[in-house]
Design a protein around this nucleic acid. Structure first.
Lengths: 234, 234
DNA sequence: TAACAGTTTAACCTAACGTTAACAATTATG
DNA sequence: CATAATTGTTAACGTTAGGTTAAACTGTTA
């Protein structure tokens, strides 16, 4: 089974150093996306889901702190590591204020970076375990067991869901009666937000609607241009 | 009853220090085997069973890391403590990569060593106790004695299971009706998660299914991309 | 050193899954 | 009202995971 690689967003303007670092991390089993400046970094961040961000502090146009602030507005969870050329105390403080998880001075030992990365991801992992513990959902007359990927109606024979079907239905269930934004599903499940993943998602919505037909009280409504809404009518 | 002394393999090339350390440990109720270099260390390791290895890092011909790697190939369980003259960061990292349990800088406090030894052996002990606590399982019409590696059906002649068959069935039984993740079996039983160990596991699933055919109420179901599920149908 | 048990690797096949294309239907927008 | 953008749906396709059997390998024992 293919192991799900942890995804890192690396924002570093120095092209040489950036490529070397990206390759090094890639060799060590991380799925690395490299952005060459703050703007690009933020665009890439919005488009997908990352387990960790590594930001260079000194970059033209948009420095690492500003970028970090923008990232924090979108996501308060994702760990951030700053890279900086000189060890300036104010910078360090500024970094932690923005919500940095760690701080590295260039030049740094690459193995130290690896250690820090795995430590941080490890920590986040154990924190999130409790989060993902919920995998039983009642959806009208249906019962979704998203761990076993089973969907049963009125206690009957459970139907098997595919991983994508399961993830999508679970995400909808987490937002019952509320908007589940397109973008959310695309970044969380497809890990990319583009035309094709979007179409793919529509296909899965169709599949789910087919499953949910058994209970006419349950439906998935579209909110044009926004996303979908799983509603239970009473 | 004579208490079973814990056995320590000490590999240390400095004759004086080696003898002193051996005597010290012996006085503290350990059964110590002293090897004077890496080769001898590995020979002694293969010849017997140890509860702990203490390896000097800097040795002629074969250094401690190389020896540790060889030992790990034979035995992924035995705890290893490295001794090193200077605190070199790379060495520490290298050591942990090889699967070291602890790390000591020479000169070290001998009492600290004793503490670490007993802590490590203690930990390994409790781990294995918890692990092996349950070894009798009822699986539909079957009885699994995973200590003796026997599987019997309706009280008939028990069949012998191979170690891997036994471990896998036991792990499945510990998760009856629930998901037993692929990764769990691979890391717990095969201690490695790659394409080949994964295929190997599939082979063992096939073998187990063959055994379990006698009771059509018992089956091992696959959850695509996730793992397996041992179910007892009523 | 031959036989054997246990395990891994290879090979071949089937099933599961996800993406994409194609076309229809619906909804926004000027 | 016309037309562009978005969404609904089905089917075909390629890829990967899993099922199974047999051969190759490894270490141990007679």
């Amino acid at each position: 089974m293919e192991k799900q690689l942890k995804r890192i967003l690396l924002v570093e303007d120095d092209p040489n150093f950036g490529i070397v670092l990206k390759d090094y991390l890639t060799m060590n089993d991380y799925d690395v996306t490299h952005a060459k400046n703050g703007m690009e970094g933020f665009e890439k961040f919005k488009k997908s889901d990352y387990d960790l961000c590594i930001l260079d502090v000194m970059m033209p146009y948009k420095d690492g702190f500003t970028l970090a602030k923008e990232i924090r507005e979108k996501n308060k969870e994702v760990p951030i590591i700053f890279l900086t050329a000189k060890a300036m105390k104010e910078d360090v403080l500024k970094g932690y204020k923005v919500g940095a998880d760690d701080y590295l001075n260039k030049p740094f030992d690459s193995e130290v970076l690896l250690m820090k990365i795995s430590a941080i991801i490890q920590r986040k992992n154990t924190e999130t375990v409790a989060d993902s513990a919920e995998f039983m959902f009642t959806i009208g007359g249906f019962e979704l067991n998203s761990k076993l990927r089973f969907l049963s109606y009125n206690g009957g024979e459970p139907e098997k869901l595919s991983p994508k079907e399961n993830q999508l239905l679970r995400l909808l269930a987490l937002h019952v009666n509320d908007l589940m934004p397109r973008e959310l599903a695309l970044t969380k499940i497809w890990r990319d937000d583009n035309y094709f993943t979007s179409r793919s998602m529509d296909v899965y919505i169709a599949k789910l609607r087919k499953y949910l037909k058994k209970d006419e009280k349950v439906e998935i409504l579209n909110i044009h241009g926004e996303g979908f809404r799983l509603v239970i009518n009473s």
